[in-house]
Amino acid sequence: MPVRLLRGLPLLALLILLSGCSAVVLKPAGDIAVQQRDLIIISTVLMLLIIVPVIFLSLFFAWRYRASNRDARYEPDWHHSTQLELIIWSAPLLIIIALGALTWITTHTLDPYRPVERLDAARRLPADAKTLDVQVVALDWKWLFIYPGYGIATVNELAAPVDTPIHFTLTASSVMNSFFIPALAGQVYAMPAMQTQLHAVINAPGEFEGFSANYSGAGFSDMKFKFHGLAQADFARWVERVKRDGTALRREDYQQLEKPSVREPVRHYATVDASLFDAIVNLCVDRTKMCMSQMMAIDAQGGIGGLAGIANVANLAYDRPRAIAAGERPRGNYVLSMCSADLVPAAFSSRLAASAAR
């Protein structure tokens, strides 16, 4: 075999390996992801308008003014050219202006918190279109999806009807993760004790990959799920199957589910505690813990100091491993407000005075 062919074998092997890759970011199935793909392509082309000529001219000048070229003009005293300065500065300036305008527009139109206004480039969103609400919880290391409109939930499986706006509300149980379905839309972070949002729409049926794009520990590599784009009738059948085959997801069940696990299989839940997602966000799935929203309401009224305030903070704590290890029973009460004697109803004033006298 000729030496030239042998040199080309590594390149051929690389091309064969790359042929198995799926550039899903450049071939998305959802309108938001399509707009993001267009943004990537347009931005890349605009930047190449500067990069390509600079690379070409760098190589051209090195070749044109090489030491062996005696025909090149030799001008050791040259120092300025107004025409050249205009070209050097005006071209990048125009491209920066174009990129700035593009960034300004897309920052608003592709804001993940902004509801979708169209199904795709050719179809506006119908006035009577219903939005599918999905509550997403990033666990260690799996995904929980709650459908509040249907009263069901799934683990590591997500489905949505084609050409239907989807509103995701996201949070996390412990550490920050990034929710990403490349075929549907860009990634959005999910953080504990916080809610983020994402609006999207899937335009083609199929099975697409979803995963976490933010490293979150040992099981991160297997923190994946399947997203199914389904026709309306197929989605209705999928919901019925979840209701038929699933179990109940109560707060106690969630406390077992949130424990770290790797390669968790798909699970279906036919019923879900209606207050579960709100309790996850407020760090009070355990009913003995004070909800973060309750603490913020107290703080908004001026807060509570002293021993009462200390007790409240203890009940707000997300995790109390020392108390659990010691076998202590967590307290389920806390102080919501305090009042002075003049606010106590008259019927109890004498009893209060008698207690004070003791």
Rank of each mutant, 00 (worst) to 15 (best):
residue 183 A to I: 03
residue 185 A to H: 06
residue 303 G to T: 00
residue 60 F to L: 15
residue 289 K to N: 10
residue 173 S to L: 10
residue 149 G to D: 13
residue 183 A to E: 00
residue 174 S to V: 14
residue 348 F to L: 13
residue 284 C to R: 05
residue 76 P to H: 04
residue 147 Y to I: 04
residue 187 Q to F: 15
residue 247 T to Y: 04
residue 295 M to V: 04
residue 339 C to I: 12
residue 83 Q to L: 10
residue 270 A to I: 07
residue 94 L to H: 08
residue 338 M to A: 13
residue 286 D to A: 14
residue 298 I to A: 00
residue 202 I to T: 05
residue 287 R to S: 13
residue 167 H to S: 13
residue 223 M to R: 01
residue 47 M to K: 12
residue 283 L to C: 08
residue 299 D to I: 12
residue 309 G to K: 06
residue 148 P to G: 04
residue 192 P to V: 02
residue 142 K to W: 03
residue 125 L to F: 05
residue 252 E to I: 07
residue 310 I to F: 04
residue 284 C to E: 03
residue 227 F to G: 00
residue 292 M to W: 05
residue 222 D to L: 08
residue 219 G to A: 02
residue 136 V to I: 07
residue 127 A to S: 12
residue 66 R to Q: 11
residue 183 A to P: 02
residue 24 V to H: 09
residue 279 A to H: 03
residue 293 S to P: 06
residue 276 L to C: 01
residue 322 R to N: 07
residue 101 A to P: 04
residue 8 G to L: 09
residue 216 S to I: 07
residue 107 T to V: 07
residue 348 F to A: 11
residue 22 S to W: 12
residue 313 V to Y: 15
residue 7 R to T: 06
residue 320 R to Q: 09
residue 14 L to V: 05
residue 146 I to K: 02
residue 317 A to F: 04
residue 104 W to A: 15
residue 290 M to R: 10
residue 345 P to F: 10
residue 336 L to P: 01
residue 147 Y to G: 01
residue 276 L to E: 00
residue 80 H to F: 13
residue 272 V to E: 00
residue 341 A to T: 13
residue 339 C to F: 14
residue 341 A to W: 15
residue 177 N to L: 14
residue 280 I to C: 04
residue 104 W to R: 15
residue 144 L to R: 05
residue 355 S to C: 14
residue 33 A to K: 04
residue 114 R to P: 02
residue 191 M to N: 08
residue 134 V to A: 01
residue 11 L to T: 13
residue 54 V to G: 02
residue 123 R to E: 03
residue 159 A to N: 08
residue 302 G to Q: 11
residue 111 D to H: 08
residue 152 I to P: 00
residue 2 P to R: 15
residue 81 S to Q: 02
residue 32 I to T: 06
residue 251 R to S: 05
residue 264 E to T: 03
residue 203 N to W: 04
residue 5 L to C: 12
residue 88 I to H: 04
residue 63 W to A: 15
residue 20 G to A: 03
residue 80 H to L: 13
residue 184 L to P: 01
residue 173 S to F: 12
residue 253 D to A: 08
residue 177 N to I: 13
residue 321 P to I: 08
residue 14 L to P: 07
residue 128 D to A: 14
residue 168 F to T: 01
residue 105 I to T: 14
residue 156 N to W: 06
residue 249 L to G: 00
residue 171 T to S: 07
residue 251 R to G: 07
residue 9 L to F: 08
residue 30 G to M: 08
residue 210 G to I: 01
residue 266 V to S: 10
residue 210 G to L: 05
residue 13 A to S: 15
residue 242 V to P: 00
residue 38 D to R: 15
residue 97 I to D: 07
residue 15 L to F: 09
residue 22 S to F: 07
residue 152 I to V: 06
residue 49 L to N: 09
residue 164 T to V: 10
residue 314 A to S: 14
residue 83 Q to M: 11
residue 56 F to S: 13
residue 110 L to M: 12
residue 223 M to W: 02
residue 334 Y to K: 01
residue 119 L to Y: 06
residue 336 L to H: 08
residue 216 S to R: 10
residue 278 D to H: 07
residue 18 L to M: 09
residue 305 G to Q: 05
residue 316 L to S: 03
residue 3 V to R: 15
residue 316 L to D: 00
residue 155 V to M: 12
residue 12 L to K: 08
residue 74 Y to L: 12
residue 134 V to C: 05
residue 222 D to H: 09
residue 333 N to Q: 15
residue 91 A to V: 04
